[in-house]
Each structure stands twice: as structure tokens, then as C-alpha cells.
Amino acid sequence: MLELVAGILLAAGAVYFVLRPIFRPQLTGNGNREPGNGSDGEDPEDDFSPRAVALRALKEIEFDRATGKLSDADYDALKNRYTAEALTALRAERPGSEKRETGNVAAPPFPVSRVPFPVCPTHGPRPEADAVFCSECGRRLATAPGYCARCGTALERDAHYCHSCGARVAA
């Protein structure tokens, strides 16, 4: 008898727990609050932005040469190629801005409206007006075409709403 009661309580609890997000979405609306996994728990090696990939390649080429695996000719060719790639990636990322490196030059004006400055889901609005990637974490930013303007999720083709946060996709 006791067991049956325990079983029913267990079932009721589980059903409530599972269905709660549907009936009372506002309670859990913020959803997915993973414990402190922003960017600081992550390995830089897990960054796959073109910039990071090209930079890592350059490092590796240098190291391979230092350990004698690359001949000078191969080294030069690879070096040139990946330096060019890295530069392209850097330029694409923040055209002519050195602000982040030099630190907080007079608190960047965080815009109230969401239009003029692109927003990183983790690091907030970016100081660079036309940034495509976040200069903190290298993540793709909201305004890029094909990505949700609110949360930065890659959108389905022809989507009218973001499937992650539900925001309407600008036409």
C-alpha cells in the first residue's frame, strides 16, 4: 500500500515536473540556465571561428618547423598562406578597431535600441558597429544574415520565427 502511494506520488511529481514548462512557461521562460558555462569554462581550442583556426594553424606551422618537420620552402609557402588567411579573418572581424585591446576607453555607449549595434548573446552589445563576430568570444553575432537577431541561433531556411527563442525574423 505504502509502495503504491509512493509510486503515485512519484508519478505525479514527475508529470508535474515534465509538464510545468508547457503550462507555466513564464516560470521557466528563461530556460537553460546552465551553471556558469559562458565562455570562461571553455577551452580556447574549442573556438572554431576562422580567425582562431588560422591563428592555430600559424602556431602549428611554426612549431612544426621548430621541431624540424617542415622544410624552409614548405614553411614559407604555408606561412604566407595562413598569414593571409588570418589577416583576412581579422579584417572581417573588426575593421579598423583597436578598442578592445586598449581596454575600456570611456565605457562604450551601450545602445538602448537593438538595431544599431550588434549584440553577442553572452557579452552584450559590441562596440564595433558592423561586427560579424563577437570580439570577446568569436561567436557569430546576431545581425549576420541567416542568424537570429536576438539570440544568434542559425535559422532554418525561410524561417519566420527563430526556433530557439521565438523572435520574429526581420524580413
Binding site: 591563428l55 602556431k59 614559407d76 604566407n80 581579422l90
Partner: peptide
Amino acid sequence: PVPARPLAAAGTPEELERLRGELDRLSV
């Protein structure tokens, strides 16, 4: 074969400096 030299030379000294900075932050 090696046509990349002119390509890379396109980087201004300032850009190269920045690239250097980025690279130094990466540990290998």
C-alpha cells in the same frame, strides 16, 4: 607554388602587429 608572398605583404605593419598580439595570446 609560392604566389602567396604578395598576398601577405598586403598586411599593413599595424595589422601584422595585431596579428602578432593575437598569436601571443594563443599558447601552443
